[in-house]
């Protein structure tokens, strides 16, 4: 594929912006968590694009894939804890809206 690596970064920026938008706009906690996953995916794509642009046929740059693996692990942990929190919130409030947890609002 002869696409310049900048275009991979453009795709990454677009996906990250969509994740930010969804995280700020949606009030459903589960959808907000999905938007965080979208942002982490954009970060993965940026890591891999950087690795690709620094790789040569005789000298591969593997920091991108290695850090992507770490990011995926953290994303899995984040999803598990986030969804456990969603279940706890639902048990308390019978709702998964962010507005339903506002006791500590000043």
């Amino acid at each position: 594929m002869n696409v310049p690596s900048e275009h991979l970064f453009f795709l990454s920026a677009g996906l990250f912006a969509l994740g930010v938008l969804g995280f700020l706009v949606r009030r459903n906690v589960i959808v907000a968590l999905m938007c965080v996953e979208l942002m982490l995916n954009a970060a993965n794509l940026a890591f891999l694009a950087a690795s690709r642009s620094h790789s040569r046929a005789d000298a591969l740059d593997l920091q991108g894939p290695v850090f992507s693996i770490f990011v995926i692990t953290v994303a899995a942990a984040e999803a598990a804890v986030g969804l456990a929190l969603v279940i706890a919130l639902y048990r308390l409030k019978q709702s998964v809206e962010t507005d339903s947890a506002s006791e500590m609002k000043g």
């Binding site: 970064f9 453009f10 920026a13 677009g14 990250f16 912006a17 969509l18 930010v20 700020l24 706009v25």
Partner: peptide, 20 residues
């Protein structure tokens, strides 16, 4: 609130595009 969020997201995306 949604308009503000859209502006923030567009700013983040634009900053990413310029940085790339």
């Amino acid at each position: 609130r949604a308009k503000l969020a859209a502006v923030v997201a567009a700013g983040v995306g634009l900053a990413g595009l310029i940085a790339a």
